[in-house]
Amino acid sequence: MDNKTIDLGKRTGKMLLFGGVYSNLQALEALKTIAEDLSISPENCICTGDIVGYCAQPEETVQLMKHWGAKSILGNVEEQLNEGANDCGCDFTAGSRCDSFSKLWYPYAQSKLSKDSLDYLKTLPDFLTFDYAGKKTTVVHGSTSLISEFIFKSTVWEFKKPNFEATESDIIIAGHCGLPFNETKDTKLWLNPGVIGMPANDGSPNVWYAILEEKNNALTFSHHPLEYDYKLTNTLMSNGILPEAYAKTILSGIWDNTEILPQKESAMQGLTLVL
């Protein structure tokens, strides 16, 4: 781990975990309200990256993150924006539908971001670490070795284990794959809170976040659906520039395709998530 890591020290109280805001301002506003209703401080709100993405309001979304004060790491989108790259770095297969769509939304986002927002994105670290309930926790986007690595529930533990070893962590909080899940093995926990910018391919327009807390001297976690004004998000995305397929997903909760998904996750399309 030669990349930039910020240690947040010891954390207490409830923690709100989320990822993949994807320029979805309405979802981020709703999540911020949840945090305030639960009295979770901004310092205890952690994003796994990809603040910028498929939806219509990248500038407004980055500015809300900045002024809210929630913590975030770099997603591959922010890394590419910081480098002035011409693509999102999502590791989509060349010529795939996702790759074709990225040629629409990425330059759109790039054109909308102010210098102030780009300067803010440059302050984000590659990783965050903190101690919680006696457990060392590390926040990554894809993995410790590759920011754009897709790791799913069905991904074998042998691909997850090196992340714990590299960081000497008990808990890995990860993003990038777009689906919420958790897996525990040998006292280690891999926790993906999901994303709030797009539905989880489960047939519902709701999106997902997670809560970490300490109860009776033990760490607990829970996944939660987030309701927000998805109809407004859909309307704003239907601007003749962004992929119409993604605007439809906002309403239907069904992904346009399952190109990035392993067979097990692909077979679960449209099914209610059990977490």
Rank of each mutant, 00 (worst) to 15 (best):
L31C: 13
E36Q: 15
C55E: 01
C98L: 02
A56G: 03
L81R: 11
A70R: 03
S41W: 00
K71W: 03
I73K: 11
V62D: 05
G89I: 04
T61W: 11
G84N: 04
S39P: 00
C47D: 02
K71G: 00
D91Q: 10
C47R: 04
N76R: 13
D87P: 00
Y54N: 05
D87G: 07
A85Y: 08
K66M: 15
N44L: 10
Y54F: 08
G69R: 03
Q57G: 01
G53H: 00
G75T: 02
P58H: 01
L31P: 13
I51N: 02
E60D: 11
S96A: 10
I51E: 03
E79N: 13
D99E: 01
I40L: 09
E36N: 14
L81D: 11
G75E: 04
N82V: 06
A94N: 07
H67D: 11
I40C: 09
K66S: 12
A94C: 00
C90A: 10
F101Y: 13
S102I: 02
R97N: 07
A56M: 01
P58S: 03
Q80G: 11
D50L: 06
V52I: 11
N44E: 10
E60G: 08
A35Y: 08
N82M: 09
C45L: 04
D50G: 11
C98Y: 04
